[in-house]
């Protein structure tokens, strides 16, 4: 401080300079592309602190794991094994169905569906700012994470990557008011866009026809339009259907399926074309933490 300003610099001038510098920074950050590169390096520089700030929680989790008795572990193992068995029996026919689906799609001339590659990421920081809903993940461009990459959890779509650093990245959630996601109703294939409305409120559906066939409880899945999210991931269930009294347009809200307030482990998705080199084939199958 003393290097730049002598003690005699009036307070008014200093605050004026600071505020105008801050405003010009904001404007630069919004408008100029080169700034994202600068941010990338700055984010990379500060990212070790995320791991430090997360360490009490992870230490607590480790302690929790250490204090488990053998009996508890055995029980847990048993239930997990049972669960795995059930899910594997569900998956037995998946390969055959996948093949059949692809054959049908070839007959119809529609593009084939490709497998996705997944990788588990841990949430380091759920954002503290009440006006932006973002989370910081512990995987970055080193692991092949890219901007606009879809992020899901075991229940449904969570959001997409917003910015990356070398070993962390930041994801914007679907409930952020800046975010919109193309969806379709699973029941009848109607397509629309689900727009975030703050994480305390449900998503709003937009781009609807006036007499839309939609009911409370309908499942909305990603439509794959726009090419950013792969098709068929559950996003939300319709929670209320109302009609605007003034112009009789429907107002439909939908509750996100993923529990966006309690995110812990998330899955990053890659498709065939942009899959990173670092993912070995055996790695994406054994990704359970």
């Amino acid at each position: 401080m003393k290097l730049i300003f002598s003690k005699s610099t009036p307070l008014g001038l200093r605050i004026f300079l600071a505020l105008s510098f801050a405003i010009s920074l904001i404007i630069c950050d919004i408008n100029y592309q080169p700034f994202t590169v600068i941010r990338y390096y700055l984010d990379t520089a500060v990212s070790p602190l995320y791991f430090v700030s997360n360490s009490p929680l992870s230490a607590f989790n480790t302690l929790n794991n250490l204090s488990k008795t053998q009996q508890e572990l055995l029980n847990e193992n048993k239930t997990l094994r049972k669960q795995l068995q059930m899910q594997e029996s569900d998956l037995i026919r998946l390969n055959a169905l996948k093949k059949e689906n692809n054959e049908l799609r070839t007959l119809l001339g529609s593009p084939l569906r490709h497998d996705e590659y997944k990788k588990v990421a841990q949430v380091l920081l759920a954002d503290t700012n009440p006006y932006a809903y973002q989370v910081t993940l512990d995987k970055g461009s080193r692991e092949g994470v890219f901007v606009k990459q879809p992020v899901v959890d075991e229940k449904g779509v969570v959001g997409q990557i917003y910015s990356t650093a070398y070993n962390t990245s930041r994801a914007i959630l679907i409930c952020d008011s800046q975010h919109a996601i193309p969806v379709q109703v699973l029941r009848n294939g109607l397509t629309m866009v689900a727009v975030g409305n703050g994480c305390n409120n449900d998503l709003l559906l937009d781009f609807l026809p006036n007499n839309v066939d939609i009911q409370v409880g309908d499942l909305l899945v990603t439509s794959g339009l726009g090419g950013r999210f792969p098709q068929g991931y559950p996003v939300a269930t319709v929670s209320s259907v109302k009609v605007d009294e003034h112009d009789s347009t429907p107002i439909i809200t939908a509750a996100p399926i993923a529990d966006l307030k309690r995110l812990h482990y998330l899955l990053l998705l890659w498709n065939e074309t942009n899959k990173p080199q670092v993912i070995a084939p055996d790695q994406e199958t054994n990704t359970n933490e």
């Binding site: 605050i15 600071a18 801050a22 700055l42 932006a132």
Partner: peptide, 16 residues
Amino acid sequence: LFLGTLLGIHAFIFSL
């Protein structure tokens, strides 16, 4: 940088 807000917003608020 940590909160991922636009660079300068908190700087503005803190200086004020």
